Amino acid sequence: MRIHRHHLFWPLATLAALLLFNLFYSPEDFYTIQVRGGHLYGTLIDILNFGSPLILVAIGMTLVIATGGIDLSVGSVVAISGAMACLTISKGADQSALGLVMTAIGLALGIALVLGLWNGLLVSVIGIQPIIATLILMVAGRGIAQLITSGQIITVTSDSYGYIGSGSLLGLPFSIFIVAAVFVIAGLLTRSTALGLFIESVGRNPNASRLAGIRSRYVLIAVYLFCGLCAAIAGLILSSNVSSADGNNAGLWYELDAILAVVIGGTSLTGGRFYLMGTVIGALIIQTLTTTIYMIGVPPEITLVVKAFVVLVVCLIQSETFRKTLVQRWKTRRYPAEREVVKHV
């Protein structure tokens, strides 16, 4: 098998191109890593730290897309979970109390599971199209988050809670270890058990999987539950990193970045085979691209345009059909005489 046909080749090549660009453009600012107080600091560390919420959301989105669905509500779930956790902590007398923080985390994860179950039931039981079912929660969820925060930014002063997003373990941000744990769990469940095969089967051919005895309804509910859980953990990291919850802006447009990360990673939007490692690389590409755009001084008003253009180019390069079309047109222009001879023969 040719190496360029491997599903990770183009995502890795894109990430390498971004890193190579920064090596020539700003090697000192981008690649310098310092140790202060036993913790590692630097742009590369920031990419891993700030990209952790997106990676988590994208991992959950991967399994949903593998079933042929989509979850547009993850951004709202991010906002709701962060708002619920911060609201609970803000009501406590000792905001750093471990019991209070654990209660806040439990409530945030619990409400996310309920929201994931809601999406799963709408899709699998009632039969609403995934894009519509999750669009309902995308719109309503943002309002729920603002109701929880009363339209204000809730600020907390909890060292225990802040450790989730800004703490360090073994010199690295603690959020990286959270992502690693979720990735390993998702990988074990989908590659070491039959669950991954069930997910791909439901996404590729729902009718055939049903006739084969796969309970697709439970598979769909499970992936939406997991996606909601991943979004909730991302919301905890985001809110704890800034010690506040903003129901209006937290997790805004995260669903779009997550979908892009999944597509860049090689998973098809039509469902079927999925690639968790490709998704992680896709999320790192998006975070690295965002960091690079800011570092080179692109005006904020056109940042999204530049980001969208680069992502479009990456997706086109990954498209085998697009590459074949380019090669065919190049050959047509390069050897027009030979084509005429073949045509007449």
Score class of each variant (00 low, 15 high):
residue 222 A to G: 10
residue 222 A to S: 15
residue 239 S to R: 03
residue 232 A to N: 07
residue 242 V to E: 10
residue 244 S to P: 02
residue 231 A to V: 15
residue 244 S to L: 12
residue 218 Y to K: 15
residue 227 C to G: 04
residue 230 C to G: 02
residue 223 V to S: 05
residue 225 L to G: 06
residue 222 A to C: 11
residue 227 C to T: 06
residue 236 L to R: 08
residue 216 S to N: 15
residue 242 V to A: 14
residue 221 I to A: 09
residue 229 L to H: 01
residue 218 Y to P: 05
residue 223 V to T: 01
residue 238 L to N: 12
residue 218 Y to S: 14
residue 225 L to D: 07
residue 243 S to F: 14
residue 219 V to R: 08
residue 237 I to W: 13
residue 222 A to L: 14
residue 220 L to K: 07
residue 228 G to T: 09
residue 217 R to Q: 10
residue 216 S to F: 10
residue 227 C to F: 03
residue 233 I to D: 06
residue 230 C to R: 04
residue 221 I to Y: 08
residue 244 S to N: 11
residue 227 C to A: 15
residue 234 A to F: 04
residue 235 G to D: 02
residue 233 I to G: 00
residue 216 S to Y: 11
residue 228 G to Q: 07
residue 244 S to Y: 07
residue 217 R to A: 08
residue 215 R to V: 07
residue 217 R to L: 10
residue 244 S to T: 07
residue 233 I to M: 15
residue 215 R to T: 03
residue 233 I to T: 12
residue 242 V to Y: 15
residue 222 A to N: 13
residue 240 S to V: 05
residue 240 S to Y: 03
residue 216 S to D: 13
residue 219 V to E: 12
residue 225 L to A: 04
residue 224 Y to V: 06
residue 239 S to K: 07
residue 241 N to G: 01
residue 224 Y to D: 05
residue 234 A to Y: 05
residue 230 C to W: 10
residue 239 S to F: 11
residue 218 Y to T: 15
residue 234 A to C: 08
residue 238 L to K: 02
residue 240 S to A: 12
residue 224 Y to A: 02
residue 215 R to H: 14
residue 227 C to Q: 03
residue 234 A to S: 04
residue 236 L to E: 13
residue 227 C to N: 03
residue 223 V to H: 03
residue 237 I to P: 06
residue 232 A to R: 00
residue 221 I to P: 09
residue 225 L to V: 05
residue 233 I to S: 02
residue 215 R to C: 07
residue 225 L to F: 11
residue 232 A to V: 02
residue 222 A to F: 10
residue 222 A to W: 00
residue 241 N to Q: 06
residue 218 Y to E: 11
residue 239 S to C: 12
residue 216 S to I: 13
residue 219 V to C: 04
residue 240 S to F: 06
residue 219 V to F: 09
residue 218 Y to L: 15
residue 230 C to L: 14
residue 221 I to S: 13
residue 215 R to Q: 13
residue 226 F to W: 15
residue 237 I to D: 02
residue 220 L to C: 04
residue 217 R to M: 11
residue 217 R to C: 05
residue 239 S to Y: 04
residue 240 S to W: 06
residue 232 A to L: 08
residue 222 A to D: 05
residue 225 L to E: 13
residue 240 S to G: 04
